[in-house]
Design a protein around this nucleic acid. Structure first.
Lengths: 341, 341
DNA sequence: TTGTATGCGTTATCAT
DNA sequence: ATGATAACGCATACAA
């Protein structure tokens, strides 16, 4: 009994009276070994408390069973919920998830992609399409399977699982316009380098143009994704003259901030001003009144992305992109535009 | 030029006209190599696009520069915010964070601990003290450095960074009692296997006893941590006769659910019923009125935990536990107890 | 300061 | 079905 150091295949092999190769087989393809020896080996593994060494395994098998996920932020139920689904699905397939968050910073994202690849990630989950050609080149040269989630666009060659941000926002904007709103405020994340934000903005413009409005009818504030910033941005919009009759927000978190801004200014929602969000996370239902938003199937997206990642890693043949549907959820924060100028 | 396969130390060594050992040194302790050769080697690394193989490195160095973190859930700003801090701090020290979530399930947590250890995690971040002796034995035998976060108790031997859940809840309860509340409802997570929930409950009892109340004055509902469950649990408490004059919740998410329940029942907060939370996450400020809660320094906790993990991994000498302070935040949801029976 | 040589623990190839 | 053995790519003790 060697103590102090962990048991190895060798120890197990000796204990079970077989070769190391057989031990390895018992672990990786038990179906090819005789039931009898399998039992003996497993017993040895148990009594010795053997567990394969990760590094050695990765070195020999050229695979880590690890997939990396890089999200813009963890502090947001949107990605957290999706990631939880990713992790669950990966675990079921024997893989582990490595996450990191880029703080919505392309530079950091690039660095983290490199780090995760260096850490031996077999595949990568990325959010949104927009990133530098260098990074995509890097992934392609290294042949790292990767899927883009939270975004979908028919013309994008890379495997993706997501939804059409532009169409979804357009649908919401059409409802909004149908309520008679003509002076529109938009609180959005920084659009540069963020195709989701960009497309939501474009979707809004689509609807506005179809209704005979132009960019002049839109006041816009770019900000980072947190409640306080949403509040500040909405405050700025709501103190303009003329005041927008509706504040559409790039996500529910910003919308929650906008609700606070309205409260501060003594404006009632939706009588004085309407507010809309995007994502339909839990916060949408705790606001008073509840938030009109776009429902996005985050869990489903996470699951599908994980499956795709696993398939791509095993098959190497590029998977087909998946487009998921979204749904406009009408709740109390969206009402008719006030008639007063 | 060998194509199709990644360059190795050997390739770099040949290209730079040095030995593999020197290449290794250039990467791991550049200060011991001559500036001139260092430059040559770095040039070779660049042109070849060399990156160390993770598995080989882990195998040879017996270290992965990876630390695992297991949290009860990712779908909750509480842990998400802390984890983001952990990740940031680890990254600064050249380590990567492996996360997984246990869904508040001890069995899953145990399995994930084993998985992360098998994945070569150098150290582990755990939430709360309470887990089976087997798991602690496992960690001790394997000599896996680990720190417990989100909890602190003077009598606990294991390194921890957190706060005194019991004292914090007691402080909040004292404020509540000072508002005249005598019939108290508690919505808590399942206490068994969750020392945080357990201690918050005990803290409440401490305050109640000090005020001359007993367990009879407390109605209690155990539930899982999400808004809908919080709503249901609070609904159950609020339809009891006599109705509690305050619903204290194990965290802000449950409190958000309680707010919905109150709204459903046509009860105004805090005129008809007061509500309190715990954690002070963003949701606390978007509720109307804003939520009275206990502020917990999540980011600070994450940072400290990460530092501790790194120190323990490098030093092996057990670090000292850190107790962080909390603060009762009085906001609109806590008011005087209604006088009507 | 640099090079040589060996070990790290597995998996996979090729026999048997 | 099982065994022997050669990679796998790097770090490091030891030599020079």
């Amino acid at each position: 009994m060697r103590s102090g150091t962990n048991p190895t295949v060798n120890d197990v092999a000796t204990a079970a009276g077989v070769s190391t190769a057989t031990v390895s087989r018992c672990i990786n393809s038990p179906e090819v070994v005789q039931p009898d020896t399998l039992r003996r080996v497993r017993a040895a593994i148990d009594t010795l408390g053997y567990a394969p060494n990760f590094g050695a395994r990765a070195l020999a098998a050229k695979r880590t069973n690890t997939v990396g996920a890089i999200v813009p932020t963890l502090e947001n139920a949107i990605f957290a919920r999706g990631l939880e689904a990713v992790q669950r699905e990966l675990a079921a397939a024997g893989s582990t998830m490595l996450v990191s968050s880029s703080s919505y910073d392309p530079e950091q994202e690039a660095e983290q992609i490199r780090t995760l690849v260096a850490r031996g990630a077999d595949a990568l989950l990325l959010i949104g399409f927009e990133r530098s050609a260098e990074i995509y080149d890097f992934l392609d040269r290294r042949k790292i399977p990767h899927v883009v989630a939270w975004a979908f666009a028919p013309d994008q060659p890379r495997p993706a699982v997501g939804f059409d941000n532009r169409a979804a926002m357009r649908a919401l904007a059409e409802k909004t316009l149908a309520f008679g709103h003509r002076r529109i405020g938009l609180v959005t994340a920084q659009r540069e380098g963020n195709d989701r934000a960009q497309n939501r903005w474009l979707g809004l413009l689509d609807a506005m143009r179809a209704a005979g409005l132009g960019e002049d009818d839109l006041s816009l504030q770019e900000t980072v994704y947190d409640i306080e910033s949403g509040r500040a941005a909405a405050h700025a919009l709501l103190t303009r003259d003329p005041r927008p009759t509706v504040i559409m927000c790039g996500n529910d978190v910003l919308a929650a901030g906008a609700m606070i801004a309205a409260r501060e200014l003594g404006l009632s929602v939706p009588e004085d001003v309407s507010i809309t969000g995007f994502d339909d996370i839990e916060i949408a239902r705790v606001l008073t009144p509840q938030l009109t938003t776009v429902h996005v199937p985050h869990r489903e997206m996470g699951r599908r992305a994980a499956r795709m990642l696993i398939d791509m890693r095993d098959d190497a043949t590029a998977a087909d992109s998946v487009e998921l549907g979204t749904e406009v959820i009408l709740r109390g924060t969206l009402g008719p535009a006030p008639v007063t100028p």
